[in-house]
Nucleic acid binder design. Structure first.
Lengths: 249, 249
DNA sequence: CGCCATCTTGATTTTCGTCAAGGTTAGTGG
DNA sequence: CCACTAACCTTGACGAAAATCAAGATGGCG
């Protein structure tokens, strides 16, 4: 799994499972060991439990920036649209992940976030978070780390898009999902895809037909079992080897 | 140029030219309007004027993280290496840009930075920057923006790698360089490439032969003039159209 | 129950990578 | 200052990978 975790450094805290059942702002707090007073202050301005129906925009590109969002439950995709209308999915985001940080730079969102299933989120007003970060050094440090982790993840995606073949990208994608489900207490072997073939393709830089074909090929080779959006990883070892192994390239 | 600036949101401050002649930490300060005392404190812990010879590593992946670096003069590339040895160049960095932010998350560098020409840098010890950010809200906000801008830039590169053909990528690359040279007070029409064809190819997700062929093709079509690493943009308009125009894809 | 979105599969074309050969340039040491 | 060398670049021929185009199948949802 080393290779994959290198590609996509993600939250993988054991505590996350517990955290997710409550509010994912715990993901924001726990690692820095805040006192109860401090957590109370943090919770005082976070808007918890906002819901987003499947297909709903959490925010749109160009919209003014006010808040970050922590995914509490469900799944979102974020994507940028180029001027000539091409969509690039920049990520799929699960419980415990924080999105919207791209908007800090220009104070407008640069990508859109759409719920892939009925979801819940916490809204974190940025100005207040900023202020609290000044008072609590550990929280400040933690927030820097969260942003830095996003940069590292993005570099991993660049490596994926720039250096890998379609087959390798899809294997990396499946193993990454597997790992993220596992760290949330779900099975790493069998899971449900929340996104369409087209969205997977957009994220991985290939066409939906290619995604479909490679799924079929993987299934023929007994690497996975696919039934619509249900995925079962039958041979994780060989999937991993697909990433490193093809040293021919 | 709108399209290009969307792809790669970069520093493009008019003040930058002046700043570069001094120390690029001004890039870190000016936009937030610090007082002289505050600048003095910032300068007190920044190690200015460290030099790096062409080919020298500024830092290597896996090395412990202590400082960010502001490029004062010259040019660096940053790259990640996958376990099976493939290199992905994640960016080329010119004066006024800050690198090393990926290392905050794990407290180890995740990519390597190499000088592409004799260069000078400012070293910014992170712990002290963090502390000063707590005292100066405007500096804190500015640093969040710098990190956020890196995320936005990375998303632009994803769009480039995921959605564009080789020809479009190279056009986008040239226009991006053009814009960055211009914002530093150099000619946007003619400039010297600091990197090899292979490094360009690694950044853009293609082979060096493809880079070379497309340069030649662009030259045949009177879009650019290439002579070794000297580039002259002859028809910026058509180069831009190459990006948006190919709406066939 | 029927419709629309999504998915699969095949045939064909396009793009780009691979392999190979030769040319050019910059840097080095005599 | 010049010769030499290694790194870098260009170009061609060929092949592999993935996009495109097209047709039909499947399934979820109102």
């Amino acid at each position: 799994m080393a290779q994959v975790s290198y590609l996509f450094k993600e939250v993988s805290l054991p505590q996350l499972k517990a955290a997710c059942s409550g509010c994912s702002l715990k993901e924001l707090c726990l690692p820095v060991g805040l006192g109860t007073d401090e957590i109370a202050e943090l919770e005082s301005f976070i808007h918890r439990g906002r819901a987003a129906k499947k297909g709903e925009y959490l925010y749109r590109a160009e919209a003014p920036f006010t808040s970050l969002y922590a995914v509490k439950a469900g799944c979102f995709k974020t994507s940028v649209i180029s001027e000539d209308g091409r969509e690039q999915v920049t990520g799929f985001h699960m419980s415990g992940e924080i999105i919207g940080m791209d908007a800090i730079s220009t104070e407008r969102h640069t990508c859109s976030a759409i719920a892939l299933e009925d979801s819940e989120i916490c809204e974190i007003p940025f100005v207040q978070l900023e202020e609290l970060c000044r008072k609590i050094p550990a929280l400040q440090r933690h927030f820097y780390k969260v942003m830095s982790r996003e940069i590292v993840r993005d570099h991993g995606v660049m490596l994926l898009l720039g250096n890998m073949k379609a087959e390798e990208r899809l294997a990396a994608f499946l193993l990454n999902l597997s790992q993220r489900f596992q760290s949330r207490g779900y099975s790493p072997r069998a899971f449900h895809l929340r996104m369409t073939r087209e969205e997977i393709g957009s994220f991985l830089g290939m066409k939906l037909e290619t995604v479909s074909r490679i799924f079929s090929r993987f299934q023929d080779e007994r690497l996975i079992r696919v039934s619509n959006r249900e995925i079962e990883l039958l041979d994780m070892l060989r999937l991993k080897q697909l990433l490193n192994g093809c040293s021919s390239k």
